[in-house]
Design a protein around this nucleic acid. Sequence first.
RNA 1: GCUCAGAUGGUGGAACUGGUAGACACGCAGGACUUAAAAUCCUGUUCCCGUAAACGGAGUGCGGGUUCGAUUCCCGCUCUGAGUACCA
Length: 941
Amino acid sequence: MDYQFAAIEKKWQRFWADHQTFKPEDSTAKPKYYVLDMFPYPSGAGLHVGHPLGYIASDIFARYKRLKGFNVLHPMGYDSFGLPAEQYAIQTGQHPAITTEANIATYRRQLDQIGFSFDWSREVRTSSPDFYKWTQWIFMQLFNSWYNKDADRAESIDKLIKHFEQHGSTGINAVCDEEVSTFTADEWRALDDRAKQTELLKYRLTYLRESTVNWCAALGTVLANDEVKDGFSERGGYPVEQKKMMQWSMRITAYAERLLQGLDTIDWPEPLKEMQRNWIGKSVGALVRFRISDFQFRNSDKSEIENSKSEIIEVFTTRVDTIFGTTFLVLAPEHELVTSLTTPEQKVDIKAYIAQAKKKSELERMADAKTVSGAFTGSYAINPVNGEKIEIWIADYVLAGYGTGAVMGVPSGDQRDYLFAKHYSLPIIPIIDIQKIETEADPTKEGRYINSGFINGLAYKEATSTVIAKLEEMGAGKAKVNFRMRDAIFGRQRYWGEPVPVYFKDGLPYLIDEKDLPLVLPEVDKYLPTESGEPPLARASNWKYKGTEAYEHSTMPGWAGSSWYWYRYMDAHNDNEFASKKAIEYWKDVDLYIGGSEHATGHLLYSRFWNKFLKDIGLVIEEEPFKKLINQGHIQGRSNFVYRLIDSEGRGTNTFVSHGLIKQYKTSELHVDVNIVENDIVDINKFKQWRPEYADAEFILEGGKYICGVEIEKMSKSKFNVVNPDDLIARYGADTLRMYEMFLGPLEQSKPWNTNGIEGVFKFLRKFWRLFHDDVWNFNISNEEPTKAELKSLHKIIHKVEEDVERFSFNTSVSSFMIAVNELTDLKCNKRAILQDLVIILSPYAPHISEELWVLLGNKPGTLSYAPYPKFNPAYLIEDEFAYPISINGKTKTNVSIPLSLDLKETEDFVLAHADVQKYLDGKAPKKVIVVKGRIVNIVL
RNA sequence: GCUCAGAUGGUGGAACUGGUAGACACGCAGGACUUAAAAUCCUGUUCCCGUAAACGGAGUGCGGGUUCGAUUCCCGCUCUGAGUACCA
């Protein structure tokens, strides 16, 4: 029979499902290997051709590892809480669980058609109570933990309580809220429960905090930052305001340093690590305290002075070595000391500036980045290292949210300070001998310090440590590491998410009893917030803990479930634990993780955070969850266009002009469905059928064809450029689709989808099929001994594919398969000794056709997936001769076959004596001859 | 602005440690088979000059450099894509 891909693929997909072919053992002598894909959010649109790219790559790798003798865990599931289902619920009233269920069914059908080797028995869904029970359980562990800086790990809150009872707050070095109380053991014991709980909340790794959120009144909901564009909601374009709300937060900042250090231990793409480093944003520097000069004269308002406890302005700097160059201080307009620092004379200026700064939107502030603006407060500060009196200004280039919201202005070393000083005629003092500051700041660290008191003559490193030591001695500053990363907000005012397992008593949060987990999402009449702005869960009637206490009404954010799900796959049906100790000890961590780079500072950071926490409390083994990570590139859409002729009155006609001729006519551009276009040539009959109004369309052709215009855009329905894998599978089969997606180019590279070329892969598979069959499609295989040439072809591909897969270069191995099959076709090889091994090597890429041929070759069904990968024997590749390229002065001129048994000198003599080479020498003696054994001969004339 | 990645035929891409640039495939052109189409097969296909061919010249974004030899290494620049944004 010829290659009947549809029947073959259906047959084997059923076989794999019926026999659970890909279900791994939970412990064997085999080494384990865990291949994970980022699980999808099941959207209503289903899969387009870009989605499976990463899944195909990981599937090839998983199948390859099985052949290599590994016990492979390769699971799949759904990140099924999320906005679109909720939005749909708001519009239609349909429960998001129903929408989600339907979408999952579509995803599953589409995934099954591609022939992935997932172990579906371990499927997880983040929205299923069996799963989110454990998400809630992990939340409870975080609530019951605090971060001990001295031990550099999370510890049980009970341990902290014990310490408070015995020693009070002394000796505690914790990552906690800013304003924690100090107390003795006696004082602690005297506190009532409410006071104790209030204090403990400041230490817990998940805690309540007043945070600003993006509140959209029109949509009645809180929006994430990426749902807000320029002050308006991305969906609907309604105004968004900043609103303060009590929110659950995660103390991820406790792990900032470990999250940063861990990056050096994992094999991830460098750009992605860089994004995480920038996000964490570590700066090593110092806090410096500037005393305010003549504090008493700022008596504009008595109460303000009393409220501002401080006579000190604290700044953060990464260049404390430049402190002698400080000629002014700048505070953010929002800085708490601004009002009390402002002298009566300056009050008008400062007020006006603050008002103006407040009015500016983020966008304007950014656009304005180059215009210098600011205002003088009228007050002065004293530089602690030299006693100089310097002006205190405010300016919006200083951000309230970073560092201390105040900076020391060093115009000689910092460009922003330089511009500010020039603009307001403030002094600029050079502090390093080689500094060039005529036109701009010079942030150099080279050279020796000048004008710098006790560090004059020192170099950068020494100067920094000297200044810090001096500041510490004076009590005017200390070394400090600052992070840009903030604690993560862990609450959404939404319905379709995990309920937070917390109830409130006297306004304080308490965990529900562990045996009451899961706390199931209650039914509500509508999926909108209440009229008073409470989250949708407030609508649930009689939803109280023990019938009396109110539950937390916000739900967990989208990243909650995905921050630990890979552990659930290890032991997906465990009712007693999130995963058993035994399963975790066996599977440990993810060996290979494939997914998009858009999760760099979201999912991939939060997952690392939770993993470190779970390790601290002894539940998991590895410090990092994902050893190796690969970002697959994004598939963009490739849109095609037709050009409608515009008549003299400016109206559109029903005539369409081919792309090459549009300069000669007046036309308007229209998207055309890419599925009726092949190689940019539109199928005119299909076009006429596409839409009724085109039934009588006429065409102005070039060379008898209608050629379309092309543009690369996002793949979307409205652009008619969505290519559906279902259509391609129906036409060419899953094996062709799998190989074609890999053939497209390097996995990591983003590229537009272009179906042109899929025929080539399809032809290859048929050619492969034909190797096993005679002219009339009878299966025909020979048991003869293979020839040297055949063995060479086979061992070349064994080696090549092995190398390619190990470095995730799947596109080049597809080429190599084509070369091998072309060679074997030319050799008319139908020998079992060659083809059986070839089937094994090809099976990760094209599993269905391989299974079919494997069984035709007489093997037991289902054994191919665990067949041993053929062993490469380099002896078959050894050549006696090599056709050396002969180049003259670096330019290749000819080839000469030379026995490889000759040594360098003999090879050189052989070449120079050769008639073809003599011709080029033209009687001259070469100046130099370079022979690279087995590579090249270069003659220099 | 900063950081990172990239730029190779008509197209997607290959060349892994400096050693025959353009593998493999698409497309295109010509041919075979066929009443015809599909399918299949064969030949050619970087560009320029010449052209039956041999042969000659240029050539991996641009300009330099190192080297017997550079798509690969170094310096400077241009463009494209991604991330980030007054982070002190």
